[in-house]
């Protein structure tokens, strides 16, 4: 009996070791995955940047803008861009606070960031639904009407992720962010949450950067 007990205790120890191994892998996977997602998204957005400059420089039939062209509202565009940037900033500030152990501040910040993000998406939908030009009237109008639906879909997906993080954070005691939880599963949960949160933060900041870049293309250039 004692033999079997000893064996089962080594088994448990071995299992814990393996779990630790895959826990570590999962933390790294969140890091790698977010960077890779940024890589893939860059190529997706890059295809619109390419279309923008290609059609602009080609100006076929002299219809990059075309005659009788009306520019989309700069006010709405700038507001959408600023909402995305401020949302990323607020969330980033919250991330710094949660790193210092203040869960509640992050939660408030995350809710604000989500509201700002949703406002940006909503305003974007409004702008697309009420375009001052037919989408096919020029090269510019095509790229404009083509890019923003993609971008807002991806923003929405990221906000979904933020919602998941918010929901998970409810079940993690605020104390866990200050000192290591007593149990191994508790530690794992917190570390997973942190890894996922910092991965999200990277992607959300990246999306804000993309919003600025395309604002420059569509409104400033």
């Amino acid at each position: 009996m004692t033999d079997a007990a000893a064996q089962s205790s080594t088994q448990v120890a071995a299992q814990a070791e393996d779990d630790g191994f895959y826990h570590e892998s999962a933390l790294n996977a969140a890091w790698t995955g977010s960077r890779l997602a940024i890589g893939g998204l860059t190529f997706l957005f890059g295809c619109f940047v390419f279309a923008y400059f290609y059609l602009r420089s080609l100006n076929s039939s002299r219809r990059w803008h075309g005659s009788g062209y009306v520019h989309p509202s700069v006010w709405i565009g700038t507001t959408i861009m600023l909402l995305a940037v401020i949302s990323a900033g607020v969330q980033y500030f919250g991330l710094e606070r949660i790193k210092a152990g203040h869960k509640a501040i992050w939660q408030v910040d995350a809710v604000i960031a989500m509201a700002l993000g949703l406002a940006a998406v909503g305003l974007q939908v409004y702008q697309l639904a009420d375009l001052p030009f037919p989408p096919g009237s020029s090269g510019y109008s095509s790229v404009f009407a083509g890019f923003y639906p993609v971008f807002l879909t991806i923003q929405l997906a990221a906000l979904l992720w933020l919602e998941i993080l918010l929901a998970r954070s409810r079940f993690i005691p605020a104390m866990s962010f200050v000192e290591q939880p007593p149990t191994v599963p508790g530690t794992f949960t917190v570390q997973r949450f942190q890894a996922s949160l910092s991965a999200f933060s990277t992607v959300w900041n990246y999306l804000a950067l993309v919003a600025v870049l395309f604002w420059l293309l569509f409104y400033a250039l």
Binding site: D19, A26, G33, S34, A37, A157, V184, T189, A195, S196
Partner: peptide, 10 residues
């Protein structure tokens, strides 16, 4: 594609 929440093995 960007949903990268790590799975819970534990």
């Amino acid at each position: 594609a960007i949903e990268i929440q790590p799975e819970r093995a534990q």
